[in-house]
């Protein structure tokens, strides 16, 4: 089973944790391993491999790392997004300045991670507060504005509602499919990785442990 690390970024009021909660709660597959608490969740999904003839689904597992969204904890984020396979950058579509904060996160990821394979998904939350006839539309960030930005930056883009669950599943499904695609390509060209792992190793060795150690019978 493939495992992927997914990190959640976004301001503390945008409801990023709720989106993941909704995703895990709504998944029928109950293979989740959160034994400590809700800051780390894991969830499996099934991916259909359309390119191969196999009819069997591939199961992949997300390990979802939540971050503290408050401004003062921003400096801790790099410890969470390092080695991530995907990042979910969440903003609140009912807050005017929310998208620009999300864009800051996207910039930071692009500048600091430097991994072309990192999948970034821009995610507008609180869709339930928009387009509702009785409550009035609270939308403050236009879909097109975010969409155009996401296309420019080559990001996945969705608008969802953690409250109703609208769109949430699709987000993880499409991230999963993309990750699986990358993984497959990577496995086909394995040589690059092997070369990379050869460097940076410490060059010490003990003599091989043995069952008839000469030093053990001398005394």
């Amino acid at each position: 089973m493939f495992q992927f690390k997914l990190v959640l970024l976004g301001d503390s009021s945008v409801g990023k944790s709720s989106i993941v909660h909704r995703f895990v709660k709504d998944s029928f597959d109950d293979f989740r391993e959160s034994t400590i608490g809700a800051a780390f969740l894991s969830q499996t999904i099934k991916i259909r491999d359309t390119s191969s003839d196999s009819t069997e689904d591939t199961v992949i597992k997300f390990e979802i790392w939540d971050t503290a969204g408050q401004e003062r904890y921003k400096s801790l984020a790099p410890m969470y997004y390092r080695n991530a396979n995907a990042a979910l950058v969440v903003y609140d579509i009912t807050q005017q300045d929310s998208l620009s904060k999300a864009q800051n996160w996207v910039n930071e990821l692009k500048n600091k991670v430097g991994d072309e394979d990192l999948i970034i998904c821009l995610l507008g939350n609180k869709l339930d507060l928009c387009d509702s006839s009785d409550n009035g539309d609270k939308r403050a960030v236009m879909t097109d504005e975010a969409k155009v930005y996401a296309e420019e930056q080559d990001l996945l883009f969705y608008e969802v509602s953690a409250k109703t669950g609208q769109g949430v599943k699709d987000v993880f499904q499409s991230i999963g499919e993309k990750l699986y695609q990358i993984k497959k390509e990577e496995m086909l060209s394995k040589k690059g990785r092997q070369a990379a792992s050869a460097k940076d190793s410490v060059n010490v060795k003990l003599q091989r442990p043995s069952t008839n150690d000469p030093t053990s019978c001398c005394y």
Partner: peptide, 27 residues
């Protein structure tokens, strides 16, 4: 470490804010 974190989630559950995840946990 895990036990210590578990106690922290104990208080979050007590206040039924566990869903807020890391925003509450890290501080």
């Amino acid at each position: 470490i895990l036990n210590s974190c578990k106690v922290i989630f104990g208080i979050l559950r007590h206040h039924t804010v566990e869903e807020k995840g890391a925003d509450n946990f890290i501080p």
